[in-house]
Computed example of a mutant assay.
Amino acid sequence: MTDTPMLDVRDLQMHFSIGGGFLDRLKVDGKGVRLENPIVHAVNGVSLQIKRGEIMALVGESGCGKSTVAKTIARIYKPTAGEVRIEGQDVAGFGFTEMLPVRAKMQMIFQDPYASLNPRQRVRDIVAEPLLEQTKTTRDRAGVPERIEQLLARVGLNAEHAGRYPHQFSGGQRQRIGIARALSVTPGLIIADEPVSALDVSIQAQILNLMKDLRDEFGLAYLFISHDLSVVHHIADKVGVMYLGFMVENAPRDVLFARPRHPYTRALLSAAPSIKAKRDTEEIVLSGEVPSALDLPSGCCFRTRCPFAWDRCATERPVLQETGAAQTVACHLIDEPERDTA
């Protein structure tokens, strides 16, 4: 088996320009100097690797950039800068035609099982669509009906379901259809953007267990986006924590949950719901609002809410550093642990 990661993202950046219409181009200041359109810095230098058979989760508050990372890797967005390597091949600059064969290696499961399926298509057509796009010859297409039946059975649906429309299914069943569609072209990587957040808790467990079984059976790699830490603890092998478009911590799941190093990671874990009568650690309540991605703070992106921030945090942006046990953290407390009183 090759050591090349299924997904290797290096210094990924995704910025969005607001405006760009005719009136925006005419904006000038009092001195007649044309004003540039504001830029949303949604993703700022994110790097990650996922091997075959590995599940990596990205977590963080709403608006932290985790879904934008997923959509940029899937090339729904064209990245502003950086590399997106699929089995060693950098696809960041690929156009639509160049991406077609790559999409057989990389598929996506979306958050909303109600909106992600075409209501005018029957299930057989939904599942077959990516498969037919990738199989150009008549000989290959002859086996598509049998393949659809196999896929539906593998995700827990019956052959009779193939003739129905999406509105005739429950939310959990619709997500199973989405999973079958993703599996149809036998990908190596599946990007799952909040795939269970719209489902009941009991159904969530069924879908998560199905995804893990499929990982074991097909050697799939997953990039799993979630804000639910209990879900992440159940499914992930390693976890990346994002804040304001930056990766602030990256570690194996058990290491991160047992010994989080970044103050933001600690706050997330302390705020997660627990069934214990008494928490192992005191809850950390963050003050202030998340800064705007239109105007990033100088230095550390988290310093405006961090209880341990000091002068260095305002002037120097921390970079990810190895701290042992395959854990990397972007925080100045790593260099000056005496300031960390947690």
Rank of each mutant, 00 (worst) to 15 (best):
A142H: 11
G299C: 07
M14A: 05
G21D: 15
S230M: 02
L48F: 07
G171E: 12
E61N: 04
T328N: 05
G178A: 08
A221H: 09
I334Q: 14
I235D: 04
V232N: 04
A128Y: 11
I225F: 02
P166T: 13
A271Q: 08
L210A: 14
A309H: 10
L296M: 12
K71S: 00
F94E: 03
Y77T: 06
E83Y: 00
I148Q: 05
D200G: 12
E87A: 11
L333C: 11
L223K: 02
V69S: 02
L183G: 10
N44D: 12
G45L: 07
D216L: 13
R266E: 08
E133L: 11
T72A: 06
N250T: 00
Y243N: 08
S62C: 00
R147V: 06
K31T: 01
M247E: 06
Q134W: 02
P291K: 15
I109T: 00
Y222M: 08
H233M: 05
R181P: 08
S116V: 00
F94A: 09
A221P: 11
K105V: 01
M14G: 02
E336F: 14
N37F: 08
F169Y: 11
A205S: 15
R52M: 01
E336N: 15
A272C: 09
P273M: 12
M106N: 05
L208S: 08
A236R: 04
L244M: 11
E217A: 15
S274E: 09
